[in-house]
């Protein structure tokens, strides 16, 4: 098998999602395409040769369908980077990295945490913070494929201001038939939300998820603590562990 090559990507456009997260629209000449849920490795190199690598999930649909639905070329990859305090790579990518600048990446990586439009099971997506990124790729891919598979997203964020893709999710919840989106706010809920602020509970999953008897394909993504807690709740509720796929982003946050 041939090596996954490092490619040079160029930043074409930036979209600020929240005060601390931004979407990078990258032109990646020769991009081979990807499946929703996969990630890339990004490598930054300083003038003296020092370099740092991190993984970032791909946010765009597999066909390069951009967030606002406008046709984007097949050589486009979108990443959404949440700045973490004192973060070496995230504070560069969501900071000084500017339109026209090059960056190296390789991928797509990961053949496990992926959703394929041909899969015949309802889908339950559970996101903590920036863990929504690969799940957004699945939601976009579902729309791009014209899939009618029932999808539910349960999205845990600290406050309403921390929600990524807020406008698009609102729009898709109305226009993408068969897609339900529910929010759990851990620190502060908006007025009239009905659910007080607090961590994800078994009741939330019972109310907004799918019952285990539906045998959904479950994707859980976010910081390690969130993923551990959510996956435990799902197993306790009777979901078959083999149908729960997880992706852990890192130590804390979200």
């Amino acid at each position: 098998m041939s090596r996954l090559a490092w490619r040079v990507a160029y930043l074409r456009e930036v979209r600020d999602e929240t005060p601390s997260a931004r979407t990078l629209v990258l032109d990646v000449p020769g991009w081979p395409g990807h499946l929703p849920g996969q990630h890339v490795d990004v490598r930054l190199t300083a003038p003296d040769g020092y370099s740092a690598q991190r993984s970032y999930s791909i946010a765009s649909a597999a066909d390069g369908d951009a967030a606002d639905g406008e046709a984007a070329g097949g050589d486009t990859v979108e990443l959404t980077v949440q700045r973490v305090p004192d973060g070496e790579v995230s504070s560069y990518l969501a900071g000084p990295y500017a339109v026209g600048d090059p960056v190296e990446l390789r991928g797509p990586v990961g053949g496990w945490f992926v959703w394929r439009p041909a899969d015949l099971a309802p889908v339950l997506l559970i996101a903590g913070g920036s863990g929504v990124v690969p799940l957004m790729s699945m939601i976009r891919a579902r729309a791009a494929a014209g899939s009618r598979m029932p999808f539910r997203l349960v999205y845990s964020a600290r406050t309403p201001e921390d929600v990524l893709y807020a406008e698009e999710l609102k729009r898709r919840a109305l226009s993408d038939r068969g897609l339900d989106v529910s929010y759990v706010y851990t620190r502060r809920a908006p007025d009239g939300h009905g659910r007080p602020a607090g961590r994800l509970t078994a009741v939330d999953l019972a109310e907004w998820g799918w019952p285990p008897e539906f045998e959904p394909a479950v994707f859980v993504c976010g910081p390690t603590g969130f993923v551990e807690a959510a996956a435990d709740l799902l197993v306790d509720a009777g979901h078959d562990p083999r149908r729960i796929k997880t992706e852990r982003f890192g130590p804390t946050g979200g």
Partner: peptide
């Protein structure tokens, strides 16, 4: 690799790590 404009890096360490790795105190 090609130089990333404006990137200097902040987590340099004196220890010898395998390529592409960085040091953590956490246990992810």
């Amino acid at each position: 690799g090609i130089v990333t404009p404006g990137f200097t890096g902040r987590r340099r360490s004196d220890v010898n790590l395998p390529p592409g790795q960085y040091l953590t105190e956490d246990f992810p």
